[in-house]
């Protein structure tokens, strides 16, 4: 029964937040494709609207230029394009997940519907868990899926351009990019990002279940006050809490001239564990608050 319940609870979240979980990523996907079509329209065999910089060298995505590269160079250039084009989706999904979590239990108290949900045999723990799963995994995965759909459709469009110019699209495009490997990498990244951001996700849930007004204000205000107090009262120049909060605020995936880097995870597994423990404490607080506060 719990399995059935969690599925229906997550579907419930989807029904309520269809704009965030369906229309917005679909619009982003559409925008992405329109951009690709525009770039293809302005590209010729030898020029491109996109230049890629790797280790100080600038590579054009014009087909002639791309065909002149070595296999390794082509792989580096196209991988970077693939990852870079995923980045906006991943960042937007983080912001969407946080805003969803902040609203998830505030809105039901605001419109009084919490009393309908509570008239059903669903525990506060399972309810909060369903919202956590939605924010941590479902939303990122929806955005990732739309991102991958946009990228695959773009690849198909570019394949058409390659074929019309008598280039072997498989050798020049599909094999160097290896979409399946990229999909897997992005999937893993999203999971790790969700765990890394657990303190913020948990905090957002707690604020959502507890705040009587302006959850976004409390969400930003409380950490801000903590940071200011630490800056004022902490002896010396050591600001552990501020640095910890800041570290867990940033996306794990960073882009630089060498591509993307999952550096924090590699060097700081303890930070990951700490974040998850703090996140669990906040989630416990969210469960308690949902049981206690029904009205705004």
């Amino acid at each position: 029964m719990i399995n059935t319940k969690i599925v229906i609870l997550i579907r419930r979240e989807f029904w309520e937040h269809k704009t965030l979980m369906l229309y917005l990523p679909a619009a982003a996907c559409g925008l992405f494709l329109v951009s690709v079509i525009g770039m293809l329209f302005f590209s010729t065999g030898s020029t491109s609207a996109i230049d890629v910089s790797i280790s100080g060298s600038v590579f054009s995505l014009g087909i002639d230029k791309l065909s002149a590269l070595s296999e390794a160079e082509r792989m580096a250039v196209l991988s970077k394009v693939f990852m870079f084009s995923s980045y906006p989706f991943l960042l937007v999904s983080l912001v969407v997940a946080l805003s969803y979590l902040l609203a998830s239990m505030f809105n039901e108290r605001k419109d009084g519907s919490i009393l309908f949900w509570k008239s059903m045999p669903v525990s506060d723990g399972l309810t909060v868990f369903s919202k956590l799963v939605t924010g941590l995994f479902v939303i990122p995965m929806i955005y990732l899926t739309f991102c991958l759909v946009a990228q695959l459709l773009s690849l198909i469009l570019v394949t058409g351009l390659f074929l019309s110019n008598d280039y072997a699209a498989w050798d020049m495009l599909w094999r160097p990019i290896n979409p399946v490997a990229h999909m897997f990498l992005l999937f893993c990244y999203q999971l790790l990002q969700s765990f890394w951001s657990a303190p913020w996700f948990g905090f957002a849930l707690l604020i959502s279940a507890w705040a009587k007004s302006s959850p976004a204000g409390w969400f930003i205000g409380i950490p801000l006050v903590v940071v200011i107090l630490e800056r004022v009262y902490s002896p010396g120049e050591v600001f552990l809490v501020s640095e910890w909060l800041w570290a867990h605020s940033l996306p794990l995936l960073t882009m630089d001239s060498e591509g993307f880097d999952l550096k924090w995870l590699m060097v700081d597994p303890a930070g990951l564990l700490e974040g998850m423990l703090v996140g669990m404490l906040f989630i416990g607080g969210a469960v308690w608050s949902r049981g206690k506060y029904n009205e705004i």
Binding site: E16, D111, G112, S113, L115, F116, S119, P121, V122, E295
Partner: peptide, 15 residues
């Protein structure tokens, strides 16, 4: 308990 009890509240509305 809510498996055996249900209620309609004056302020609790359907979303």
């Amino acid at each position: 308990m809510m498996q055996d009890v249900c209620y309609i509240s004056d302020v609790g509305i359907l979303p």
